[in-house]
Simulated scan of single mutants.
Amino acid sequence: MTDRLKALADAGVSIWLDDLSRERIESGNLAELVQEKSVVGVTTNPTIFAGAIANGERYDEQVRALVEQGEPVDRVVFELTTEDVRNACDILAPVADGSSSDGRVSIEVEPDLANDTAGTIASAQALWKAVDRRNALIKIPATLEGLPAITSAIAQGISVNVTLIFSTDRYRAVMDAYLTGLEQARDSGLELDRIQSVASFFVSRVDGEVDKRLEAIGTDEALGLRGKAALANARLAYAAFDEVCASDRWQQLADVGAHRQRPLWASTGVKNPDYPDTLYVTDLVVADTVNTMPEKTMDAFADHGEVTGDTVSGRGAEAQEVFDRLAAVGIDFADVLLVLETEGVDKFKKSWTELVETVSRQMEEAKA
């Protein structure tokens, strides 16, 4: 276990790997990361699975068997991905047994359902049943149509990773959806301590969009604000989380065993090479959060990342000042958020298409 990653974990940040493959599972690599790099969770998405399936022979036998059974491509995708998540859940089970909230593995609902509440609920139910592990999380997007699906899933006892959150306002709506689901679960007699949730707040994409606009403005004041929006946005989100956790509504649920819906910092790989490669880890250190990282970012932090204490709490006013300055130079942050959510849903859907096309090619090869 590296000292730097251990220091990050000791500061209350749960380190989750943003990657999964059958190679990692069967070679022992995932178990090794748990033992040596403080990894206590895994997140996946269709792009990750597409890469794993395209580059890994370990899927060939299952693909051939499913092709022989006459299964359509959507079903083959479902079987391949749920198999990986189920096995990853088993590897993380000892972590889950020793933790109130870690040891989790996430899998997404079908992205084409991002604007379909009933379809999202059905997809979440099917994935939860197929994986059949208490330490699984079903990823549901924080679209307007996704919010009631979040409530419904939680009310049924399905643990949820809410994804594609960009704005503090939408994050507040996500927290409300979670609490409403918990209240419904409580009222129907479910045990709340069996239900888990995280809220994935996207980070680097915010800087990507805002920085592009600042560079188009081009003034010294505008250029001086590059690389500040994403961290400010995340710090305002954490302030909202703190506020909800201090509410009477939350306390009533906590008193009967409910778990907090921890903020999860997603998209933490740095895209601008001018920024420190650990920026979205080092500057988002605060207890009771998750940082899900690609292995490249994890290795960078293990090599030279620094933990200097809490870099989030009590910085809401400072974060708001950043947004005031952004507005002053002409940044319409509401439009930024609209663009990010629209692009996010589009990328969500395109990644699914990529996965389906990858599996279709594997199926054709299996028939040859």
Rank of each mutant, 00 (worst) to 15 (best):
D132V: 03
A230H: 05
I138G: 03
E354H: 08
I91Q: 02
D169V: 14
A230Q: 09
G56E: 08
V73A: 01
F333G: 01
A136C: 13
L144I: 09
S101P: 01
S204N: 14
L264G: 12
V359E: 00
E71G: 06
G41Q: 03
G316Q: 10
F166R: 05
V40W: 01
A136K: 09
A88F: 06
K347G: 11
A317S: 12
A234S: 15
E145S: 14
A319F: 01
N272M: 10
S351L: 13
T353C: 04
R194M: 07
E110K: 15
A173V: 02
G269T: 11
T297F: 04
A199E: 10
L113H: 06
S27K: 13
S247A: 08
T353L: 08
Q196G: 13
E71H: 11
A124D: 11
M175E: 10
A317C: 06
G316H: 09
D74W: 09
R134H: 03
G98L: 12
V162G: 04
A149L: 12
A126P: 00
F333E: 07
L236G: 00
G314Q: 10
V356P: 00
T82W: 04
V281I: 15
A88V: 00
E295Q: 13
A52D: 02
D335A: 15
D220I: 01
S188L: 00
C245D: 04
V256Q: 09
A65M: 10
G257Y: 01
G309R: 01
A124R: 08
K212N: 14
E243F: 05
T43M: 11
M175S: 07
G51A: 03
A230S: 15
Q320S: 11
L5N: 01
P111F: 10
V329R: 02
R133T: 05
I91W: 02
D211F: 06
D248W: 14
S123Q: 12
K367A: 14
D97N: 15
D346G: 07
K271E: 15
E341R: 09
G181H: 05
Q251P: 05
I217N: 09
L182C: 06
L337I: 09
T168G: 04
F301I: 05
Q362H: 13
R22K: 12
R235L: 07
D274I: 02
L5I: 06
D90S: 02
K212A: 15
A239L: 00
F241M: 06
V73C: 05
S101H: 14
L337E: 14
G314V: 09
Q62C: 06
F241S: 07
D97Q: 15
A114Q: 08
A230G: 09
I150R: 07
R361I: 02
F241W: 11
G257K: 03
T219R: 11
V307S: 07
R205Q: 12
T219N: 10
S200G: 13
L30A: 03
L338H: 13
Y171Q: 01
V339R: 14
A232Y: 08
S152T: 12
V270M: 10
W265K: 00
Q62K: 11
K37L: 08
W265E: 00
E57K: 13
L231M: 06
T81S: 04
A153I: 11
P94K: 09
E321H: 11
E83A: 13
S313Y: 00
A11H: 10
K129S: 11
